[in-house]
């Protein structure tokens, strides 16, 4: 435990992506995230809103409202639902639809970003983390 767990995780995520960390808003924004094949635009932001109970609970994830997928609105995207008090530029991505087993001892914002890559790569799958497995 150094400068708080979320701060340290955001710093580590910053080894790969430009990161904005807001302590007061409990928010982490991943800038220039490389969206998987099928998404347009291919680079955009991810927004993680950290619950007051983080790391015991998984953050709420949003993607930019302008992001679109080639086959239409994905199953786990909730257009029209954004952060409270937001400016309408975000849409909620229901990462928790995947029945994620979030383990506060092991899981981090880095793991969440990996999960988001898998989820966005199979945006209509209920279990994208098993895609391609035997």
């Amino acid at each position: 435990m150094k400068r708080g767990r979320a701060y340290e995780e955001a710093r580590r995520l910053g080894d790969r992506y430009p990161i904005q960390y807001s302590e007061s808003d409990r928010r982490v924004v991943v800038e220039r995230f490389d969206f998987p094949e099928g998404w347009d635009p291919r680079f955009g932001k991810l927004r993680y809103d950290l619950p007051g109970t983080y790391p015991r609970d998984i953050p709420t994830v949003y993607i930019p409202r302008e992001q679109s997928y080639e086959t239409g609105k994905p199953r786990h995207l909730l257009r029209g639902i954004g952060p409270s008090g937001g400016d309408g530029t975000w849409s909620k991505w229901c990462i928790e639809d995947h029945n994620v087993t979030w383990d506060p001892d092991e899981d981090t914002l880095i793991k969440l970003t990996t999960m988001m890559r898998a989820s966005l790569a199979a945006p209509n799958s209920d279990n994208p983390f098993a895609e391609g497995q035997a």
Partner: peptide, 25 residues
């Protein structure tokens, strides 16, 4: 092993503030 009061938890840290930050690769 508790994430709240265990070795990597927040026992006795009080109210801390580190402000906002930007991290870049």
């Amino acid at each position: 092993a508790c994430p709240t009061c265990g070795d990597d938890g927040v026992l006795g840290v009080g109210r801390r503030s580190f402000g906002d930050a930007r991290f870049t690769p």
